[in-house]
């Protein structure tokens, strides 16, 4: 697999929130991490990024072990992350948000920004506005675009559709599908499990910090037990 995290264990203050979790994503694939509240989904994300101080496990990207790298170096190696909240620079303009996203990007920034504007046409219209003035859905697009600026190989999303209306949710999922077409490995944590599985190639279901189920989207959607427990019937 292109990007894998194996046997992740860790938490805060000596209490392990996740235990022995493993995830894999291939290029051009969308993989969702699902589960009830408090299952450790966001903690798993942090462990993969190396933000969690005391965690163990192995993370590898394209065959290279990146476990030893610090968060900033993992980002340099091609992973990009969109946090659930505070995921844009509200005081900066949309364009400046994208420029900051490309802080580590060596190529032609303007070209890359224009590519983002084609991918997310709505934010082009707002490019000179403060990102904080945008609507929830537009902010989320800015956040995605910012994360894509470095031309990452892996995109990690922490609940990209939290707190947005169903219409905006569909729109965001559509954008994520477009991102997948660029041969990027997408790993996302989602609360809206059913909708997320509909666009996902595969999914993991975490329960109390452990891998409970995994499989392709259709399988998870159609398994009656999983439906009952996690997808609300």
């Amino acid at each position: 697999m292109y990007f894998s995290a194996k046997n992740l264990t860790g938490g805060y203050g000596g209490v392990n929130i996740i235990e022995d979790c493993s995830f894999e994503v291939d290029q051009g694939e969308i993989v969702s991490i699902l589960g009830p509240n408090g299952a450790g989904k966001s903690t798993a994300m942090k462990a993969i990024l190396g933000i969690l101080n005391n965690s163990s496990g192995e993370v590898s990207l394209n065959g290279q072990d990146i476990t030893k790298l610090k968060t900033q170096d993992r980002i340099k190696s091609g992973i990009s992350f969109v946090p659930q909240t505070n995921n844009i620079f509200t005081e900066l303009t949309v364009q400046e948000n994208l420029e900051m996203g490309a802080f580590l990007f060596d190529g032609d920034i303007n070209k890359r920004i224009n590519e983002m504007y084609t991918l997310f046409p709505i934010i082009k219209e707002k490019k000179d506005q403060s990102a904080g003035e945008l609507s929830g859905g537009q902010r989320q697009q800015v956040a995605l675009a910012r994360a894509l600026m470095t031309n990452p190989k892996v995109l990690m999303l922490d609940e990209p559709t939290a707190g947005v209306s169903p219409i905006v949710m569909d729109e965001i999922f559509q954008h994520i599908l477009n991102i997948k077409k660029q041969n990027i490995a997408v790993l996302m944590v989602e609360q809206n499990a059913r909708q997320a599985l509909e666009i996902s190639d595969r999914g993991y279901i975490l329960v109390t910090g452990k891998n409970a189920y995994e499989g392709n989207g259709d399988y998870l959607l159609n398994d009656s037990e999983i439906r009952k427990s996690f997808l609300g019937g």
Binding site: K76, N87, F89, E91, G101, F103, L104
Partner: peptide, 14 residues
């Protein structure tokens, strides 16, 4: 300015 606005995201942006 980005760092001042959102320290965590600035770190994530490198």
């Amino acid at each position: 300015r980005a760092y001042s606005d959102n320290e965590d995201l600035a770190l994530l942006s490198g």
